[in-house]
Write a protein that binds this DNA or RNA. Structure first.
Lengths: 204, 204
DNA sequence: TTACAAACCAAGCGCTTGCTTGGTATGGTC
DNA sequence: GACCATACCAAGCAAGCGCTTGGTTTGTAA
């Protein structure tokens, strides 16, 4: 699988942690807890218990609790940016690229990295000013992928509305799916959901 | 103004607090602080300082800190449901009703009640199970307004996608505007933004 | 076997938190 | 003038918080 190869190379470059490492396991549990209870309501004792160590031992791996939150966010953006770039690489036209982006973002939000993506959306206020800047810079690079495609579609005349406005509407609509979309519980498949979004934009 | 009359009658029925009452002032400041820093990071000392009293005096008006959060949410939903019903009452067709709903929700999110609406979206995890149920019941009544109109449009053939899916996409897209839309800072007016959303649904 | 760093534990410090308590000022009612 | 409810203050308690500390176990390599 392509996504697996991307993950491997990111791990090799030390840009994200392997999920079977101590650090990776901690970050996965942290994402789960942060999403479930929120960052502030999750204590370092909760985090430690989730990976089976004492609370003090956390601070051997991370200097502060906030650093854990930042790591969850940074690694998630890195992974998803790489996955997006790969998904787009296979598409020829801008229409196909847009569909690939929508599908990939739905996968990010509702798949393996879903919990971390929710943390990214809901918990940015808990970051310090410095960490926020760092995360935002990565986020900007991710957003540039979208804007390139949408601007292309605008120039082709396929899109009438402002690319920035459309991207922002899509950000809200797609990230909100995390609160209601359950692909397992019958009904809509991920492809079906992607179809609906594309149709909503008048690009079916 | 019509909205003012609605507010007056809700105040008379004791369903929302007058903004010049002690309770109303506290709830307004609470919404501001909860949105700005998040519920957990806002201390009762912050809240008390914002209205110029001692922290202990808060508990003369509310039994717990959580009760303040619940009150912010409950009163906001009550007000916005009433405003929505009024906005829809003036519309004839389902198309007009949908436009009225979108416009009114954008107003809720980006106008006076914007801070409270953001709290409603971001802070529900901080509610106890009991409070959450109470808020959700009010929320369901609010959502029914949307679903009635969207289902009507579906039956008329004006809408192709599933009403539930469309409503959920709209919920995400519209509530997300709070993070980027600044009507004061030039550019898009509220009407212009409403136009773009309507057009996005193929109903321009 | 020795040496040493990484990973962890047990205990608890210092601080902040939500909330309680006992008491006081104010204004209206009989 | 006595009474009382409402709104508030000043002080602080008990619990929980992030994080530190000093010491122990575990894995690796010479």
């Amino acid at each position: 699988m392509n996504q697996e190869k991307i993950l491997q190379s990111l791990i090799a470059d030390n840009l994200v942690s392997a999920s079977d490492s101590a650090r990776g396991r901690l970050l996965r549990e942290a994402a789960r807890l942060f999403r479930e209870k929120g960052y502030e309501r999750t204590t370092v004792r909760d985090l430690a218990a989730a990976v089976g160590i004492q609370s003090g031992s956390l601070f051997h791996h991370f200097r502060t609790k906030e650093e854990i939150l930042k790591a969850v966010m940074v690694e998630t953006i890195r992974l998803n940016t790489a996955v997006m770039q790969a998904a787009m690489g296979e598409a020829k036209s801008n229409r196909e690229k847009l569909r690939a982006l929508i599908s990939a973002e739905l996968e990010s939000i509702n798949g393996q990295t879903g919990e971390a993506m929710a943390v990214l959306v809901y918990e940015w206020r808990s970051l310090s000013e410095a960490s926020r800047a760092e995360v935002l810079e990565l986020r900007d690079r991710y957003e540039a992928l979208w804007l390139d495609v949408l601007t292309g579609l605008k120039e082709e005349g396929a899109l009438k509305a402002d690319p920035f406005v459309v991207r922002r509407m899509l950000t809200g609509a797609l990230s909100w799916t995390v609160t209601w979309y359950r692909p397992d519980r019958g009904g809509l498949t991920r492809d079906g959901l992607t179809d609906q979004v594309v149709a909503m934009l008048g690009m079916g």
